[in-house]
Design a binder for these strands. Structure first.
Lengths: 217, 217
DNA sequence: TAGATTGTTAATCGATTAACAATC
DNA sequence: TAGATTGTTAATCGATTAACAATC
């Protein structure tokens, strides 16, 4: 069992995108090498944590020297699967869907947006970001011609159950989910990343209300 | 020092919106009382954790009986500040901004959206969700007439620094932030809730790539 | 009273931090 | 070689889980 196969804690995984972003910034600023101490400072964590985190995946540094920024960024990019092209469909081309279509750099992150679906007949057939929006009903036909590795669900909770059922039947097992339907409970073999925007507003509501406001993240 | 004043751990705070949602569902389904065990099951956590969490804020239950759903929901709503009306402005009326304007139930969550700002001259002056979009430059004048308790930043990282500076100067200290500018580092006295959508896609990328996929959240 | 279930204390588990030997 | 900084083990801290006395 190699080091890379060991169980990686979720907090570590959730820090990877931040490491990646930090290292990109540094690379752009022409910084070629970085110590765990300096990287930690930039991330608002401890140097120990940086070294522990990176060592979950193998030694990317050089003792007595530090880490080479471009190399470390590349290794983290690989961990995040950025060197692949995961075929992805997006369901629900409302404002949120469009925000994602326009602002996510799918290519960079290792995804390829290859299908848009909506139920609104006014949207179906129109073009967006180089793709024609398909009707919900066309999914089955679509999955015959295309592999679909992941689905992004920008649909309301009310229609999520039905949509996920169809996608699951079509073999899709990975979801970026913006509604409150609990995919993982129904389909435990799926990989699901949930984003609950309203929870963020509620959390802010708590922090603004909280009297003992000692302000942390 | 009352129980309510004690330091509340961030994981507990982040579970509050989930409790709230769960209890709303139960209330709608006509469930009047609930045990920590049943609530835990619905939330995919342990009964111990439910009781520990709720006891951070005082005893909402009855020994030997359980919790009254409507009462507990009400208490959590209060904790989340839902009984207040925090005057809020939104910056950046692009797709993401519109998604939030249309889909967030501000009133319900204790917020009142009272101002929209953008720099795009084509948008300024147009109406959206009952509000006229103002030019960025009008903020100072706006804050003379209105109290602004919080700002939602649906703007790119590149313009965030400047916008936050203006808002801070105008007295705003609470932010729901969707870009990568680190408000908290620059202005430590602010309350900030960050939402980094791209990190969610990258995390999904990791989970899809990860060979030792033992699937957890 | 007996049964149920909370509130709370104690035990465990996991994540973060500190320390230091390895080594560049 | 001396200084620096990693990789890794050990110590600490904090969060979760278990246990049980209190009490409805």
């Amino acid at each position: 069992m190699s080091k890379t196969d060991r169980h990686i804690a979720m907090p570590v995984i959730r820090r990877l995108p931040r490491y990646y972003r930090c290292l990109c910034n540094m690379e752009q600023n022409g910084i070629e090498k970085i110590s765990s101490r300096a990287l930690a400072e930039a991330m608002n964590i401890t140097a120990s944590q940086v070294r522990q985190d990176l060592n979950c995946f193998g030694g990317f540094g050089q003792q007595g020297y530090g880490y080479i920024v471009s190399m470390l960024r590349g290794e983290i990019a690989k961990l995040l699967g950025m060197d692949s092209k995961k075929k992805t469909v997006l369901y629900g081309v409302g404002n949120l869907g469009r925000a994602i279509i326009y602002h996510f750099d799918f290519e960079k992150f290792g995804f390829e947006l290859c299908g848009l679906f909506d139920t609104n007949p006014e949207l179906v057939g129109t073009e967006l970001g180089g793709l024609i929006i398909s009707d919900d009903e066309e999914l089955e036909k679509f999955t015959e011609d295309h592999t679909v590795d992941a689905a992004i669900l920008c649909i309301p909770t009310t229609s999520a159950e039905e949509v996920v059922e169809k996608l699951y039947a079509a073999g899709v097992r990975c979801f970026l989910n913006f509604n409150h339907f609990d995919i993982k409970s129904r389909y435990p073999d799926c990989v699901v990343e949930n984003v609950h925007l309203s929870e963020s507003l509620m959390t802010l509501g708590y922090l603004m209300t909280d009297k003992s406001n000692s302000a942390e993240e």
